[in-house]
Amino acid sequence: MNIQRIHAIFEKDIKDFMKNMMLLVLPALPLVIALLYALTSEGEAELPLPLLYLIVGMAFSGITSAMIMTMMAEENEKNTLRGLIQSPASFVDIIVGKSLVTGIITLISLVASLMIVGIEPFLEFRVILGLILLFLFFLLLGIGIGLFSKTVSATSAYLMPVMLLFGFTSMVGTFGFAEDSMAITITDTFPIMQAIKIHDSSSWMPMVVIAIWIIAAAIFTYVCFRNTMTDD
């Protein structure tokens, strides 16, 4: 890892982001949902957690995963990744530089959206730690997908299931499944559902479950990395 090189990648990707219409609209998505909530739930007390976590899931899947996978896939598609790899920058430098850009944009959009609907429930150490873990999970998932999808257009096909499964998990309760159905039991272990659990228990179990998801995502990313790096 080299700070100077990470900074160079960061600077390049921030400038590129500012000029990329396709990426610029992403941070607006959670904000739009937050504004809709604020307008429709006038005067009401605190919003229920599943609704708040829809905004969180929207930010992490629609910004974090989507941004990093698009950036990686574009470097792949336009053959610019080759230039970076030929340079003395390591693969970690490249990923960290891009992750910082993704992280900052996600943070700005998420904080702004939560301020609109009431950020109080999130101002707790364990909850913030949970959000950081969620970020890592969605980031790794995005990197992995970005590595194996060779074109930007291919990423959109993979992004849909990621958003529906992992981003909007908290909405599963509104589909009218029985409390003990398979769907509920399985989705209950998903990262977003575990993050909600952090709010109303003092157990560390949810963190452990999210950590397991992170490890799984890391393995997935590593496998994708191995496959792209050996082209003969």
Partner: peptide
């Protein structure tokens, strides 16, 4: 900016 990136990567 294209050249600046590589200038920095190569220090």
């Amino acid at each position: 900016d294209n050249l600046k990136l590589f200038c920095k990567l190569y220090k």
